[in-house]
């Protein structure tokens, strides 16, 4: 298991916008790639970097970002896929011990984050964000201090959502915990208070004058923009406004009522949506100081 099942080959700066002391540094590593599959890893990294670059607002901030690829060869190919979760039963020996079926859930794909941090601390300690690509076509991923995703179609969305948490401190904008109709009755009905959330993309304050994203709210947009008529359930109503309307939509941060999100949908509420305007604004605020002086 672990570092006895492979070795670090080296690091390549694949997107070079300058001194890492001056730029926002994204580091990608791979697990479950054998030495003979490193060319595939290079291609897989290029694909996800292209996906990130195409996502607003990263497209307009690209000159602020460096990307580093750390090549790691594993003894075996793939990731552990236990039969207990309906998997194949494969248990390959890989450097970061990638495995599905964590917590008994097949699509919960995790790696040994201690080993990942040890490698990054050694090779690229100026990293702001770390992602691990796992060489498997089974859908899965996870977040935390290391965003982990497989190669399955759509899994890169997991990386973008988790980057929102890890790099930009975004809250989840969905209004349930385990799921609408799944949470125990009464446990997620109304935000019970505890201060204004520190995260930039949810709020307990729908007052037009003092809301923290008020500068992005049009005068014609009502505040709050939607209300949940029955706080014992997730709000079933569709979006009564255009998809890009910024306001205060009730239901966010794991509560049906009492917390608001800036747009009806956002990548931090459900995958396959763009970042909402407030999230994009926050990403710009974080990344802009890393832009070269000639561009700012």
């Amino acid at each position: 298991m672990g570092t006895g099942d492979g070795h670090v080959i080296g690091m390549t700066k694949i997107l070079d916008h300058g001194d890492p002391a001056l730029r926002w540094n994204l580091v990608l590593l791979g697990d479950g790639y054998q030495a003979g599959q490193i060319a595939q890893f290079m291609s897989d990294v290029a694909n996800i970097v292209a996906k990130i670059q195409a996502e607003p607002p990263f497209d307009s901030l690209w000159n602020a970002i460096n990307v580093y690829r750390i090549d790691v060869a594993s003894s075996d190919s793939g990731a552990a896929d236990p039969t207990a979760c309906g998997g194949t039963g494969l248990a390959p020996h890989t450097y970061f011990d990638a495995s599905f079926c964590n917590n008994g859930i097949q699509r919960l794909l995790e790696v040994n984050d201690a080993t990942v941090h040890d490698v990054v601390n050694t090779w690229m300690p100026q990293a702001h964000m770390i992602m691990v690509l796992v060489n498997s076509q089974v859908y899965g991923g996870s977040g935390g201090s290391v965003a982990t995703v497989s190669l399955a179609p759509g899994a890169e969305e997991i990386a973008l959502h988790e980057m929102g948490h890890t790099a930009f401190t975004f809250a989840d904008e969905y209004e349930y915990y385990a799921g609408c109709g799944v949470d125990a009755p009464g446990t997620h009905d109304r935000y019970p208070g505890g201060g204004e959330p520190a995260q930039p993309n949810i709020t307990a304050n729908a007052n037009r004058a003092t809301n923290k994203w008020a500068s992005l709210v049009a005068a014609a947009t009502p505040m709050p923009t939607t209300r949940n008529a029955n706080c014992s359930v997730c709000d079933p109503q569709g979006n009564p406004f255009s998809a890009t309307t910024v306001g205060a939509y009730e239901g966010a941060g794991y509560y049906h009522c009492g917390l608001y999100r800036p747009q009806f949908d956002c990548r931090m509420r459900a995958l396959n949506n763009p970042y909402c305007a407030v999230c994009q604004s926050e990403i710009r605020k974080v990344i802009t100081p890393f832009l070269p002086a000639a561009i700012v």
């Binding site: 699509r107 935390g144 989840d172």
Partner: peptide, 10 residues
Amino acid sequence: KHDTEVFSAP
């Protein structure tokens, strides 16, 4: 990570 996010398949 006292709890974690799980992503449904597309």
